[in-house]
Design a protein around this nucleic acid. Structure first.
Length: 308
DNA sequence: TGCCAGGCGGGGT
DNA sequence: ACCCCGCATGGC
């Protein structure tokens, strides 16, 4: 699959704080980010749009847009890109809550979640079940490299972008594709999600997601955050619980509800980035030492692209 | 080697 | 309402 260059769009973030490099780095693979260029494929009503974004010296972002179609509407494409990167997201309220939180009081501002489609969100969320950060991202990497679709952008022939295999492909080839990638017993859940997407549609999935076997509170909250920027669900696992208990929060569920409110899921995501997604025991050591900001060393959410 | 990890659901009390 | 266990897989 090859996409041709169609247009260039200048993007000005909604606020001064927006940090392109951090936003492009977080949980990116090497084909998405190389330290300077951010690339991805956005699907909009069956049209594939490739984008390459970079930041200029004046902090304005420049997006090159690639597609097979030549009748794209510039303002619609711009809206898609802004939505993907979160350039219009106002997180002031969230940052205010961070200041009075024992774990996120030193949060780095300007980092935004990149919105994905619901299928990729599901592949990410299910991979994190009962597995370390390293193991989970290894599963996703395996799946993409072994079975993903490589999309080439005109003029960038030697660095294809890898997209997750479509749900149709997973259904056709069966559970083995996921097991080959290390998903183990989690595969069944993804088969159900793929089936709902293919037989019904995204809307049906969204409303029945929580009823699918293998999708509990954690997975549901993660998918809603990544796919819809809905941060209002609690995403609390052993890791988050252990960390908050370390700093003296007794009822973590209640604290999340009352303190984080509509930013519950974002708080968890931000914490994984700030603490380098270290395994729990090491993350607790970090917290005890008061090191609440990312180290940028080793394999972490912000450096994943250097390794994978 | 065996044990555990950003969950989950089922079956016990 | 709780508590407890098994579950695929990979890393140490």
């Amino acid at each position: 699959m090859k996409l041709r260059k169609r247009m260039i769009i200048e993007l000005e973030p909604h606020d001064e704080k927006f940090n392109f490099k951090l936003t492009a780095s977080a949980y990116s693979f090497s084909w998405n980010f190389n330290g300077r260029l951010y690339r991805t494929i956005i699907r909009k009503s069956n049209i594939m749009i490739g984008i390459i974004v970079q930041e200029r010296e004046d902090r304005k972002m420049i997006a090159e847009v690639y597609s097979r179609e030549n009748s794209l509407k510039k303002d619609e494409i711009e809206k898609e890109i802004r939505d993907h990167l979160g350039t219009d997201e106002d997180l002031e309220e969230f940052y205010k809550l961070c200041r009075s939180d024992p774990l996120l009081r030193e949060v780095i501002e300007g980092l935004h979640v990149r919105r994905t489609d619901v299928w990729y969100a599901s592949l990410i969320a299910v991979a994190q079940q009962n597995a370390s950060f390293r193991q989970g991202w290894r599963m996703i990497w395996n799946l993409l490299v072994k079975y993903g679709d490589r999309v080439v952008l005109e003029g960038h022939e030697n660095s294809p972008i890898i997209c997750p295999p479509r749900p149709e492909f997973i259904l056709e080839r069966g559970e083995q594709v996921l097991k080959d990638s290390g998903y183990g017993y989690r595969s069944r859940t993804l088969i159900e999600i793929a089936r709902t997407l293919v037989i019904e549609d995204e809307n049906a999935l969204r409303t029945s997601l929580r009823k699918i076997r293998g999708v509990g509170q954690y997975t549901y909250g993660l998918i809603m955050m990544l796919a819809y920027r809905d941060y209002s669900n609690p995403v609390i696992d052993r890791w988050v619980r252990g960390l908050y208990e370390t700093v003296g929060v007794r009822n973590v569920e209640e604290y999340y509800r009352k303190h984080w409110g509509k930013y519950q899921a974002l708080a968890t995501w931000m914490l994984t980035v700030m603490l380098d997604a270290l395994p729990l025991s090491k993350a607790i050591e970090r917290v005890r030492k008061g090191e609440l900001r990312p180290s940028y060393t080793g394999l972490t959410p912000l450096t994943l692209w250097r390794y994978y």
